[in-house]
Nucleic acid binder design. Sequence first.
DNA 1: TCTTTTTGTAAAGCTTACTTTACTTTTGGT
DNA 2: ACCAAAAGTAAAGTAAGCTTTACAAAAAGA
Lengths: 66, 66
Amino acid sequence: MKNRIKVERAEKNISQAELADQIGVSRQTINSIETGRYVPSTILALKMARVFDKRVEEIFQLEETD
Amino acid sequence: MKNRIKVERAEKNISQAELADQIGVSRQTINSIETGRYVPSTILALKMARVFDKRVEEIFQLEETD
DNA sequence: TCTTTTTGTAAAGCTTACTTTACTTTTGGT
DNA sequence: ACCAAAAGTAAAGTAAGCTTTACAAAAAGA
């Protein structure tokens, strides 16, 4: 699964730590999701979408391998 | 987190087993998510949205306690 | 009512999400 | 070059997703 978290953060100009804060997870969790080390829960995906005011599908996209 | 899986299934007239098949998980996984026993991964949420041709947010909604 | 399909659960096991702590590397500003 | 902030990563531990097997309850159809 691909994601556009880095881009969305850049547009909002917030750090991984700030995003983590707003969502209520650790900074490492954001970093790990952003770099594709693991797949977040649907709750986290919905919270991110809310922070960025985008649809979940705009932030996370399925790949063939999923 | 709330979900409308049961309703979406009813509209498409498919069983939990058929949905599980289309998404590639076990029937119990669908049942457990549908009855709120656990929160699915974002990959599963995206696949469900694709099956139902709806946005993730239309199928899964955050609650206060999330 | 009898039979089949669907749904609800449960337990055990494996895998992966997420945490905290901690350290290194990269980036940006002066 | 120096300093501070941000990002990357790792290890160990806990929590939770998901699987398989299995069985009971409920719903649906004849």
